[in-house]
């Protein structure tokens, strides 16, 4: 049980995917303009991460031992088709949720966070439960980073920023400061 809590906390704040490992930066810079879209993106991401964790566990347990050189290709195909299937199922079962997640779902296919989760999970030899907890933690971390960033960006929308600094450069400067703040979590778990 302690192990699972450690995996969760470590993936959520100590090794935050976005701010410490630079994964999933594309949506972080792209959709962090407004709080509501940021939350939706985070939820969609978490959802796909959890599904991927289950699928990757299955692949690692039953398929890949006989063909290890196909690892990368198998992962990317499974992720791409998984996202497609999830999209179709949600569209059929809950049109409201589908409208809410909208176009964010297909974009997640080429989100580096998802493939990175699959690779980390394999390298660290997580089992099914550990993998799912890792996915939930990473998803929560991504959502947290997106949410903090969106709140700051809504706050500075009317700020008087020099012309050259508007846009990505400013977002990156904020991200750097957030990343500095998140480094403070590094001592959280090593002490205990």
């Amino acid at each position: 049980m302690g192990d699972l809590a450690w995996i969760f906390l470590s993936s959520m704040v100590v090794n935050n995917f976005t701010l410490m490992l630079f994964l999933g930066l594309c949506p972080f810079l792209g959709v962090s303009g407004r709080i509501d879209t940021a939350i939706r993106m985070g939820v969609a991401d978490t959802f796909v991460l959890i599904m991927t964790a289950v699928a990757v566990w299955f692949l690692n347990a039953f398929v890949l031992p006989s063909a290890p050189y196909l690892r990368l290709i198998a992962f990317i195909i499974v992720i791409a088709s998984l996202v497609q299937v999830v999209e179709m199922v949600i569209k059929k079962l809950s049109p409201a949720l589908f409208r809410a997640l909208g176009i964010y779902l297909p974009l997640i296919t080429t989100n580096c966070a998802v493939l990175a989760l699959a690779i980390f999970q394999t390298n660290r030899e997580y089992g099914l439960l550990e993998g799912v907890v890792f996915a939930i933690g990473s998803g929560a971390g991504l959502t947290l980073a997106l949410l903090v960033m969106a709140s700051i960006r809504e706050g500075i929308e009317l700020a008087d920023v020099p012309e050259v600094a508007k846009g990505t450069a400013l977002v990156l400067l904020i991200a750097g400061s957030l990343s500095l703040a998140f480094m403070g979590f590094a001592g959280l778990l090593s002490a205990s």
Binding site: F22, A165, A169, L172, L173, G176
Partner: peptide, 22 residues
């Protein structure tokens, strides 16, 4: 060389590019 430095360096490189363009 730590993660925040990556964000800051890219931000300053982009600022320089934007400044030249402007």
């Amino acid at each position: 060389v730590l993660p925040p430095g990556g964000f800051f360096t890219l931000a300053f490189v982009l600022l320089t590019v934007a400044w030249f363009k402007r």
